[in-house]
Design a protein around this nucleic acid. Structure first.
Lengths: 258, 258
DNA sequence: AAGTGGTCTAGACCACTGA
DNA sequence: CAGTGGTCTAGACCACTTA
């Protein structure tokens, strides 16, 4: 692999130059996804720099999300994540009636092995933004369902649903297994026929806790999707707050020109 | 300001503990947006650590996008960006007929001063993904319009539109000023009545070039929205590739339950 | 000129991985 | 066990900002 040398006259600092060398090695294809980069020891020898300088170069690539460090093993060119494309009809009634929760139905179709874990069910006071979206009063309680989604054993999303407690209490929504069609099918069983959803999409860097639960490498942002479900009476019946590993998703939306 | 002390017995490394102290000072409101953090020198004295350890703590907050370092001045709590909420009816015909391009109409309503610069118009071969979305043949050419959007003089989005050359040639789409209602109004003038749009949303870290054009600090991701416009005949007439500073946006979509 | 962050050096010890 | 990355120390010089 060609790495070149540092030019001490060049205005750019050595760590930057080393990062540039490694970056272009990746772009050229000299280093393919999954390949190991030269170790810190090799870089310090090759460039005659201190170890911290080599580390800083690698840090630059890590924060760009191009490489992933694995303690004790080495630094590797990031593998492209298998992408989940969320189509705009993913909440169509036909899927609920087919008896499949949205996530499982889609994953099967895409040929990946889906799983759900870390299921937690609770009753509590809602966060302020959720209370507002559900149009609840000051001291109304909500049912809280949180869970983690995995595709081929890799965590890709954590989600938390909030429902007005009177709607959820006594239904399978409060059970670990919500039954065929999931939460939305149970709401419709109870007479809350769904009319439409509003999704609010943002992106940011993950918190330390999200990094852990989603097993995210450095330099990987998350997509945050907050979905509010409305029934045919125009009443909000659920808010679902999801945090997704950004590289694993393409969200697709259809917008009428009206 | 309360910063506490390092616990050397704690499993967590000192740099992490310092980062946690600073982070909770921000969360508590002890440090408000725009406030300066304690300098590296102050942190090394307070915690009795080496300077690199204090720097590492600050680096952690920078990569989370919570603070911004300014050379020679200090490290400051990130100012919240003014948020642009893109509603799902933003491409409604009524806005075009009112004679306003989507961006300008919305910005005015939100009370921010909008501007567009770096306008470039070109003819060229399309990138592969654009060619596919527009269903073009191997050597078809496209019209390319790129521009940068600013709100209150801060760049928030760069956008590039691609249109089949026969549709754009000879219209105001090839001019710097596309006229009232923008590109979409010109397409409808030419008989291509718009039916719907499909937006594909992803998030990632910016390239070096995007960091420069959007004046992004460390640890700030971008939202990438690729919008394809279809006319009433079902023919794709435009692909618009936008890269948005993530903290400046909330994208809102309405999804029918059908 | 003083204070700030940016970069670098040359060591050290530790935790994790894999042969 | 050797090799890898993770963290830390205690200095140094530099570039930028502000007064």
């Amino acid at each position: 692999m060609q790495l070149g040398d540092i030019n001490r006259q060049d205005g750019r600092p050595p760590s930057r130059q080393i990062a540039d060398h490694l970056r272009s090695a990746i772009d050229r294809g000299d280093l393919l996804p999954g390949d190991r980069l030269p170790s810190e020891a090799e870089l310090t020898r090759h460039y005659s720099v201190a170890r911290m300088t080599a580390r800083q170069a690698i840090q630059e690539l890590r924060s760009e999300g191009r490489v992933v460090a694995e303690h004790g093993r080495g630094v590797f060119v990031r593998m492209p994540a298998p992408v989940r494309r969320l189509a705009s009809d993913r909440f169509a009634r036909k899927h609920r009636e087919a008896g499949q929760a949205a996530f499982l139905a889609e994953a099967e179709k895409a040929g990946v092995h889906p799983a759900v874990d870390q299921i937690e069910i609770d009753r509590s006071a809602p966060p302020a933004d959720v209370r507002e979206r559900l149009r609840l009063a000051e001291d109304d309680q909500v049912a809280v369902r949180s869970r983690r989604y995995l595709a081929d054993d890799r965590p890709i999303e954590v989600a938390t649903s909030f429902l007005p407690l009177p709607l959820a209490e006594g239904t399978a929504i409060m059970e670990a297994d919500t039954g065929p069609g999931g939460i939305y099918a149970r709401l419709e069983d109870a007479g809350h026929v769904l009319d439409h959803f509003v999704e609010e999409v943002t992106a940011r860097m993950p918190t330390a806790d999200e990094r852990r639960r989603l097993e995210l490498a450095d330099g990987v942002p998350v997509l945050v999707v907050v979905r509010t479900a409305y029934d045919t009476a125009g009443v909000p019946v659920e808010v679902c707050d999801t945090v997704k590993a950004a590289p694993a998703y393409v969200l697709e939306y259809d917008i009428p020109a009206r």
